[in-house]
Simulated scan of single mutants.
Amino acid sequence: MIGERVRRAVNVALCLTAVVGTGWGGYETYSVLSARSEINAACAGLVPVGKGEGERTFFEAFVTLEPDTRPVQPDEHWAFERSYRPTVDTPLGHGIPGLASDSGVKVKLTCAGKVRRNGAPVEEITAYAGSTTTGYTPVFKGRGQVSGDTRDVLASIAVDVANRTAERLGCESRLPDAPAGIPQAVEDLTPAPRASGTCGWYAKARDQDVLLPDRVVGTRADPDVWTESCGLLMSQVGASQARADGYGDLDPLARDQNWSASLDSWFGTEAENVTLPRLGTDDPVEAAPGKAGRSDEKPAWWASSVCHGKPAVHTLVLGGAAYAERAAPHFAKIFRAYAEDTDKS
């Protein structure tokens, strides 16, 4: 979701280089560049070079200036067998608005000082640094995670790029130095009764309803991030119990028939461009701040509120079609509990 939106945004820097080691690597026009001056020139002086020592790691970095009108959509979390594991981006913490995925780090810097670029106001700077192997695309999504050392370096690069862009544009604010030891994106599924963090509300809200998923995947809550997520996923055991308790018409868990729900929230400028998917069309449903509604084609709801003085949009998207149709009435209380808890946190 980050890639396409950022590529089409106002790009101040687009750079593919080596995080550590002395040179660049890549394909076609990137050729082989080794001098630090060439790296700085290619990256417009925004991406630092020579960080650390050791094996060369390739990355790509992007900068986006907000507000950005490109739409964002919820991630759908699902897992019906061990080889399919959802991940939830984890907050960087330490006062930095940032999130670490399984392949990269994204940070936001609020641009104080009434800065304008090309006549348009600049409210925020978003910088992303992600690991690659071929020089074009992050490759870790859903297939393992970058190492802790690489994640720390990517975070440092993202922060440096945001701060250097802020300096160049004349923004007054800066991000603090990136921390070390950043946790990896969360992929461990937790039994619903032990839910915590962004899913902590679910332990009580689920009660004993067998049609509701019995596992969660979420992160610790962080007031500095611009989005947060909680995935609800039914286990094979839970699905079997539900089918035995009166829901035998539902198909067992499978690739195209997962029993899941994804709950997401966006805050501030990110809340202005949230959309929900429609089946069979590229025309999405706009989840506008200040309103509430649902998508008829695919069971999905949105609600809006104000969190910490900023507009917020909350969404719920259900998984497989048959499960979504049967379980939708059971999720009314779940979505209400989620939105109320998010507003309080």
Score class of each variant (00 low, 15 high):
161 V>C: 01
161 V>K: 08
161 V>Q: 06
162 A>T: 01
163 N>A: 02
163 N>Q: 03
163 N>I: 02
163 N>G: 03
164 R>A: 03
164 R>M: 01
166 A>P: 08
166 A>G: 10
166 A>V: 05
167 E>S: 05
168 R>D: 00
169 L>Q: 02
170 G>F: 12
176 P>R: 01
177 D>L: 13
181 G>T: 09
183 P>S: 11
183 P>D: 07
184 Q>V: 06
186 V>N: 09
186 V>F: 09
187 E>P: 01
188 D>C: 01
189 L>V: 05
189 L>G: 04
189 L>S: 05
190 T>R: 12
191 P>G: 03
191 P>Y: 07
191 P>H: 03
192 A>C: 08
194 R>Q: 14
194 R>N: 11
195 A>D: 02
198 T>K: 12
199 C>E: 04
201 W>R: 06
202 Y>L: 04
202 Y>Q: 05
203 A>G: 10
203 A>P: 12
203 A>L: 06
204 K>L: 09
204 K>E: 11
206 R>C: 07
206 R>M: 05
207 D>M: 03
208 Q>M: 08
214 D>E: 10
215 R>K: 15
215 R>L: 15
216 V>Q: 05
216 V>A: 04
216 V>I: 11
217 V>N: 03
217 V>P: 05
218 G>A: 15
219 T>V: 14
220 R>M: 08
222 D>V: 10
222 D>W: 12
223 P>H: 11
225 V>N: 07
226 W>V: 00
228 E>K: 09
228 E>W: 13
228 E>A: 09
228 E>F: 12
229 S>E: 14
229 S>Y: 13
230 C>P: 00
232 L>D: 01
232 L>I: 03
233 L>N: 07
235 S>M: 10
237 V>W: 12
238 G>R: 10
238 G>M: 04
238 G>I: 06
238 G>A: 02
239 A>K: 11
240 S>Y: 07
241 Q>D: 10
246 G>D: 01
247 Y>P: 00
247 Y>F: 14
250 L>Q: 01
250 L>S: 00
251 D>N: 13
251 D>A: 15
251 D>I: 08
251 D>K: 15
252 P>H: 15
252 P>F: 15
253 L>D: 00
254 A>S: 13
258 N>T: 04
260 S>E: 02
260 S>A: 14
261 A>M: 10
261 A>W: 13
261 A>Y: 11
262 S>A: 14
264 D>R: 14
265 S>F: 13
265 S>E: 09
271 A>Q: 03
271 A>T: 03
271 A>W: 07
272 E>S: 08
273 N>T: 10
273 N>R: 12
274 V>G: 02
276 L>F: 12
277 P>A: 10
277 P>S: 06
279 L>S: 04
281 T>S: 14
282 D>W: 13
282 D>A: 06
282 D>Q: 04
283 D>A: 08
283 D>E: 03
